[in-house]
Simulated scan of single mutants.
Amino acid sequence: MEHGEAEGPARRAAATAAIRARTGIDNPMIERLVRSFYDRIRADAVLGPIFAARITDWEPHLLTMMRFWSSVALLTGIYHGQPMPKHAVLPIDAAHFDRWLALFRQTAREVCPPAAADHFIEKAERIAESLELGVALTQGTLLRKGERFVREDPAPAA
């Protein structure tokens, strides 16, 4: 093994440990956040139908989201999916991302201690911005910095 090969995993482990120490985030907290958040999503009048039209077996989705948030929040690298293609085809725009973020912020603030909630919310805001840019681009709209994607012909919710 070359010198650089061992540095990557060691650096990742050190970064994960530092985030855990600073925020208190651990796997049980991620699970509480994910399950609570998606309970809200499923009950939401705006987002619930979009998810219900695509997800019938929720447990695999929740497990995937737990791996995703572990990778995003703790840099664990255990998620290996590609979220952009799945989101790019959805009938969503800025209003949906705003609702998603509002529910996420509310859930994070209720489920997590302040430092953890702040960390999760910062990541969620970046993710929403990136996904919104990708959805817009897929629909033929190139957003400038600060612009939001609004569908000219709103797609049906489901």
Rank of each mutant, 00 (worst) to 15 (best):
M1G: 14
M1L: 12
E2Q: 09
G4M: 11
E5Y: 13
E5D: 15
E5A: 13
E5L: 14
E5G: 04
A6E: 15
G8H: 15
G8S: 08
P9C: 08
A10Q: 15
R11I: 05
R12L: 11
A14R: 15
A15N: 06
A15G: 00
T16N: 02
A17E: 14
R20W: 01
D26C: 12
D26A: 11
D26E: 15
D26V: 06
P28R: 07
P28F: 13
M29K: 10
I30P: 05
I30K: 03
E31A: 02
V34W: 10
S36K: 00
Y38A: 02
Y38N: 08
Y38W: 09
Y38R: 06
D39M: 03
I41D: 10
I41K: 08
I41Y: 06
R42D: 13
A43C: 01
A45N: 07
A45I: 05
V46E: 07
L47T: 11
G48H: 10
G48C: 05
P49S: 00
P49W: 03
I50S: 01
F51T: 05
A52E: 14
A52H: 12
A52P: 08
A53D: 12
A53P: 04
I55G: 01
T56Y: 02
D57I: 01
D57S: 06
W58N: 10
P60A: 04
L62Q: 05
L63N: 06
L63K: 14
T64M: 09
M66S: 06
M66D: 04
W69V: 09
W69N: 07
S71P: 04
A73P: 02
L74N: 05
L75N: 10
T76N: 04
T76E: 13
T76W: 03
G77D: 04
I78Q: 12
H80N: 09
H80T: 11
P83K: 11
H87N: 01
A88K: 13
A88F: 06
V89E: 11
I92C: 03
A94P: 02
A95P: 03
H96W: 06
F97A: 02
D98R: 08
R99V: 09
A102D: 15
A102F: 14
L103Y: 10
F104G: 05
Q106A: 10
Q106M: 02
T107W: 06
A108N: 07
A108R: 04
A108M: 05
E110W: 00
E110T: 03
V111Q: 15
V111S: 08
P113C: 07
P114L: 03
A115R: 11
A117G: 05
F120E: 07
F120N: 07
I121E: 11
I121T: 06
I121K: 00
E122N: 13
A124Y: 12
E125R: 09
E125Q: 10
I127A: 12
A128R: 07
E129W: 01
E129H: 08
S130I: 01
L131C: 02
L133E: 12
G134M: 12
G134C: 09
V135H: 05
V135Y: 05
L137S: 06
L137M: 09
T138F: 11
Q139F: 02
T141L: 10
L143M: 07
L143E: 10
L143V: 07
L143H: 10
R144G: 06
K145M: 06
K145N: 09
R148S: 13
F149R: 11
F149D: 13
F149I: 14
V150N: 01
R151Q: 15
P154N: 07
A155L: 14
A155N: 01
P156Q: 11
P156E: 14
